[in-house]
Amino acid sequence: MLGPADVRRLAGELGIRPTKKLGQNFVHDPNTVRRIVAAAGVGAEDVVLEVGPGLGSLTLGLLEPAQHVVAVEVDPELAERLPRTAAERAPDAADRLTVLTADALRLRAADFPRQPTALVANLPYNVAVPVVLHLLAELPQLRHGLVMVQSEVAERLAAGPGGRVYGVPSVKAAWFADVRRAGAVPRNVFWPVPNVDSGLVSFTRIPPPSSSAPRAEVFRVVDLAFAQRRKTLRAALSGWAGSGAAAEELLRCAGVQPGARGEQLEIADFARLAECAQERSA
């Protein structure tokens, strides 16, 4: 594990001067790493995908229980240093680490020498939601995981219908998985200390709510429903359906009141809407 002095030494060696502006915040508390690994439920059968390993604090914690760790790092210097850090700090497990120099948002299943079964990562705040949704869509063998994100993002991902923060991320994540809050992370475990709070989000893969409606079409309906939150679904979906009357017909087909709003619907409701639209056009 890496402590505060280790993190600063490695950063100095690589010439890294992390700034809040760039969102560079490295975990330097071994107890926090142990907590994350334990909460993620990583086992000996898991191939763990870690996005943004940075200097390797979490990587070292994951190597102990996992069958293999695939770390995806966009920074070439950090990616090049990580295998050496593993060899120095965890020599018995270093051969169970694969490092890919890549942008997580561009990854495809074919890029992985081993298909990941778990995602455990400290995600950059500005890309957390797109990364999680992309990886869940692209990697069907990803069964479970735990990510550390900005506290507000954690709330949105795990929110249920009717809540103030329930929105597009909440609904789309629910297509893939059961998503739950898994605790808070104090600011002082990072270097430098961020100016936002962090939280943990866990997920467990579940079957999609529809086997017939294409995910892309369901997500299109979700985007339209939340584009103008104050609009009723009859109004928000009128362009998609062809008219207000057609939207009302589809909503009633799906068992949804035309006067409802997007934040009142679960992912299964949006899936039924897409199914009704398919049936109408068949």
Rank of each mutant, 00 (worst) to 15 (best):
Q115D: 10
L146P: 12
A40I: 05
G242S: 02
Q24R: 13
R114I: 00
A245L: 04
L2K: 01
L62R: 04
V120K: 02
L200K: 02
A177N: 03
E80F: 12
N122M: 06
A66N: 04
K21H: 11
E138H: 03
V165M: 05
Q228E: 15
A93D: 06
L233P: 00
A271L: 13
A121M: 06
A245C: 02
A182L: 03
A177V: 07
G56M: 12
A86V: 01
G262T: 03
R220H: 14
P76I: 11
N122F: 07
S281L: 10
A173C: 10
I267E: 00
G199K: 00
L63G: 07
G162N: 07
V185I: 09
T101L: 07
E45D: 13
E77M: 13
R156F: 05
A5P: 01
Q141Y: 00
I267N: 00
V99C: 11
E249W: 04
G162L: 05
I16Q: 02
R143Q: 15
V221R: 11
P30H: 03
E138R: 10
W240Q: 08
R106L: 13
L119F: 03
L105F: 06
G255R: 06
E80A: 15
N195T: 11
V37E: 10
A174E: 01
V74N: 11
A154Y: 10
F219T: 00
P76G: 11
R215E: 14
R252I: 04
G56R: 10
P208A: 13
G163F: 02
G163Q: 15
Q257S: 12
Y125R: 10
V256S: 00
A66R: 02
K172E: 14
S212N: 05
L157V: 08
V179Y: 01
V129R: 04
R230I: 03
D29W: 09
P30L: 04
V193L: 11
W175M: 04
N126Y: 15
I36K: 08
G23E: 07
